[in-house]
Design a protein around this nucleic acid. Structure first.
Lengths: 206, 206
DNA sequence: TAGATTGTTAATCGATTAACAATC
DNA sequence: TAGATTGTTAATCGATTAACAATC
């Protein structure tokens, strides 16, 4: 309904966690789960899970709980991962290599479709199953392919320029492994992965 | 002061971001910054930065701002990264390879000290600069070395067992790349990196 | 039916922000 | 001094949780 409040981003951020847990439950052969059961596994409160889900509809049955496969399908639909998104990978170093070869994208809504690098040594070479394209052609190629999702695995010094190109090519979701905060227009989303940031967040408590 | 309220974890989580930005400012040759300047770069409010820092002391000068090198030193001290933490890496696959070779740990408080894998094919082999040790010896070796920080880069199916071993060895901070929520005692901290979770958080908005 | 669990409300809790006195 | 920015207060905003009627 138009005019209704947007769902808080912090709620959206928990849905992938729920989705992942539901997948594990299915693998274990479970068919039904209750918010208390999920809550115990994820170390959050059952009230929060029910409240989060209630933003999108009624997916459970009183007295019974949730049909796991059904709830998974619903969350997939909400997160728009009931389809496969082609992803562009920029950066063909060690990290790019690991990402290109990562088997965990398939089945969870993503597929690495092409790889770019600016190093003449790497352009034209093979990275796993991929041919490495010249970053200079990035905008043109991504526009042709209509790609909206990208992963940045280049050094910090190159990241902002790469992100600018991605934005120019129409990409609207960027997963950035470079250890730097980048600037993008308001309609483009960026998520950051910096292992050092995560480690430093823990050493405080040691 | 004993009895005073603990600093919220969400504040601790922003300190590494501030620290990273201060490093970049220093590289650019800046010496002084204001909360407004930092805020603009990081896309958060200047009031939040000042409030966050005020949990730990007074680091600025009215009318002037913050001495960047001094603030960086203070945050390093707060986060306990004014020293080098030896880190154990478990998992010598593509991802482990990328992590072992990552140059971004040095200078930010961490040093990969040893690598483990359970695959007989990999045990004893070289991974970059490291010899790969048998995971069966993990507990013993980590205890000897007194290691408190570890990175898990093994498949989801192996992650909980690895984490159990790490806990047994005395590790209290774990960066987990396996796409699964693991269970640990209350005095052990876990941070998660799952690229698919980050991507799924963005596709909602596409 | 009796027992269990959802979806939702209202209260609580905590985080963010606006504003400004202090002061460099 | 005039201008700028901090550190802090109080108000606002938003998220979490407890509790329970609804109902399977």
């Amino acid at each position: 309904m138009p005019g209704s409040k947007p769902v808080p981003d912090i709620v959206i951020g928990r849905l992938p966690i729920y989705l992942r847990a539901l997948g594990h439950l299915l693998e274990e052969g479970q068919q039904i789960t209750a918010s208390q059961d999920l809550a115990r596994r994820l170390r959050i409160s059952s009230a929060q899970i029910r409240k989060d889900l209630s933003h999108f509809g009624e997916f459970g049955r009183q007295g019974l709980g949730y049909d796991i496969a059904h709830l998974r399908d619903q969350i997939r639909r909400i997160l728009k991962v009931d389809r496969i998104w082609d992803v562009a990978l920029v950066g063909a170093g060690d990290l790019g290599h690991a990402i290109a070869g990562y088997g965990g994208f398939e089945g969870r809504g993503f597929h690495v479709a092409c790889v770019f690098d600016s190093d003449p040594q790497k352009i034209g070479s093979r990275l796993g199953m991929f041919e490495v394209y010249d970053s200079a052609q990035l905008v043109e190629r991504l526009q042709e392919l209509g790609i909206q999702v990208a992963i940045v695995a280049v050094p910090a010094s190159a990241a902002q320029a790469v992100v600018d190109d991605l934005v120019r090519a129409g990409v609207r979701a960027i997963l950035n492994y470079a250890p730097i905060t980048v600037t993008v227009p308001p309609d483009v989303r960026v998520q950051y992965i910096d292992p050092v940031v995560h480690l430093q967040r823990m050493t405080y408590y040691l």
